[in-house]
Every structure is written in structure tokens, then in C-alpha cells.
Simulated scan of single mutants.
Amino acid sequence: MYHAIVRSVVRRTWRKVNTGDYEAAVSMAAPDLRFRFVGDTALGADVRGPEAFRAWFARFTEHLPGVRLRLVDVVAGGWPWNTKVAVWLQVAGTLEDGTPYRNIAMQWVTLRWGRMVDDIVVEDTLKLDAALRRQQRHLLATAQPSGD
């Protein structure tokens, strides 16, 4: 029963995150949360605490506005003081130049008494890097004077 409750809470949280309510995820963070977004990209992170986690979401929306993270599946196991949660996410949206962006991500979370103490997210970094580069090129191109 406990694991069904955890899965339900995770699903509800990701539904909120998918609408842009990132505070739903931040509110689950323990004061000593360690969050890692794996990869050498503008979104790569290894930070601690809810404020740094919130700042990462701000960076995410700055770099990929309109891109959403939809939970596909969730698995939970362990005891309330050391619960492990695996999440499969679909990443989708439209880049600034009109190009569709599709990716997948996996998340591995450790909960302690319902609070997130460790969160690791792995996304296909080649696709992510290509999308971030497209975004950057588009921003640079649209910032150029028209020359009229």
C-alpha cells in the first residue's frame, strides 16, 4: 500500500510539473537535497538544496520555454526512510525556430520520509545538446539587426 501511495504522489507531482508548476517538485525537496542533471550542457547540474533546485527549473524554462516533461511510468520500492523511485519521462515541445523537440529522460529519486534527498536525472544528452544549440543559434539570429 505504501508504494502505491508513493507512486500516486509522484504522478500527481509530475502532472503539476508538466503544466509548468515546478514548485510542486521543489516542495518535495529536503533541505539537504542533492540534485544532479547528468551531462555537459547548459542544463547540467550538481547542486544542493531546494533553492538551487528551483534555480535549475528557472534555467530549464529559460533555455527550453514551453518544453514539458510528462511522466510515462513510475516504480517505487523500499521503506519510508529509504524509498527509491524510478521515473520514465517523455520530454516534448517546440523550439523557438519551430522545430519539434522530443526526448526521453530517466529519474532516480531517493525519498526519506516523503522528502526528496537525492534526485538524478539522465536525458539523452546528444538530443538535448543539439536542441540547446538550435535555441542559441535562433536567439542570436533573431537578435541581429535586419540591416534595413
Rank of each mutant, 00 (worst) to 15 (best):
L69Y: 10
W56I: 06
V91G: 04
L43S: 00
V85T: 06
L69D: 10
P50S: 04
L64I: 09
M28E: 07
H63G: 12
A52G: 07
G77R: 11
L89V: 12
F35M: 10
D46Q: 06
E62L: 14
F35W: 06
T94Y: 01
R36P: 01
A30N: 03
D32I: 02
T83A: 10
W108E: 15
R59A: 10
V47H: 01
A86D: 08
V38T: 11
G20R: 02
G114M: 06
H63M: 13
E62Y: 15
R54M: 00
A29S: 06
R115L: 12
T41L: 00
N82K: 15
V72Q: 15
Y22F: 14
L71C: 15
D124T: 03
V117H: 00
G20F: 03
A25R: 05
D32N: 09
D73Q: 15
N103K: 07
A76E: 04
G20A: 04
V91K: 02
L89R: 04
R112P: 04
L71I: 13
L43Y: 01
E96L: 14
E62V: 13
R34L: 10
W56S: 02
V67I: 10
V74Y: 03
D97Q: 06
L95D: 03
V26N: 01
R115Y: 09
F57T: 04
T94F: 00
T19G: 08
L64D: 06
G114I: 00
A45D: 05
W113R: 09
F37I: 11
W108M: 13
L64A: 07
R68C: 05
V121Y: 06
R48N: 11
